[in-house]
């Protein structure tokens, strides 16, 4: 009985640890004015490893533009989340699970402006990895409108 309990507890811990790894812990701020139809953002991801794949950073950039929004110290302008708020992600979880999946289409809307990363060790086993990315917000908005995830300004008229 005790052995079973021990095994169940072990797997529960393992699952929660895996889940914690999947949760994206990141910050997003403006990196100046992007060209028309694009946002230029700095994304900082907190990771246990000093190396991070570009896909993770891209995913965070698109996720941030959609659900977090960001501010700019220079312009003192804050951009609201494109998809409204985090509730939209839950309401359309089927769509966004595929969208942010391994072969997800989020990659089509983001590019890194340079291959250089900024890596800072902030704690014993935590690194802050940053990069500047360009997110094609107009195309993203249009495609999400077409998919019925967000409303068009002209909806209902």
């Amino acid at each position: 009985m005790n052995k079973r309990l021990l095994i169940v507890t072990f797997f529960a811990f393992l699952l929660s640890a895996l889940h914690a790894d999947n949760v994206m812990d990141y910050e997003i701020v403006a990196a100046g004015s992007g060209t028309q139809g694009n946002y230029l953002v700095n994304v900082y991801v907190y990771s246990k490893k000093a190396k991070l794949s570009p896909e993770e950073l891209k995913k965070c950039a698109v996720h941030g533009v959609l659900f977090k929004g960001f501010t700019s110290k220079e312009n003192r302008v804050s951009q609201k989340p494109l998809a409204g708020n985090a509730l939209t992600e839950q309401q359309h979880s089927d769509f966004f699970n595929l969208f942010f999946g391994d072969n997800g289409t989020y990659k089509n809307y983001v590019s890194m402006t340079s291959s250089a990363y900024e890596v800072i060790k902030v704690q014993k086993k935590t690194y802050r990895i940053g990069a500047t990315l360009s997110v094609a917000k107009e195309q993203l908005r249009k495609d999400l409108e077409a998919a019925g995830i967000i409303k068009k300004l002209s909806t209902g008229f």
Binding site: S72, V77, S78, L153
Partner: peptide
């Protein structure tokens, strides 16, 4: 001026969306 328009149009249209809603 172009930068100013591009930086402000999203917030403006999002408030307009709330008004239409």
């Amino acid at each position: 001026l172009e930068e100013a328009v591009l930086n402000n149009i999203d917030n403006f249209s999002s408030q307009l969306q709330s008004y239409f809603d």
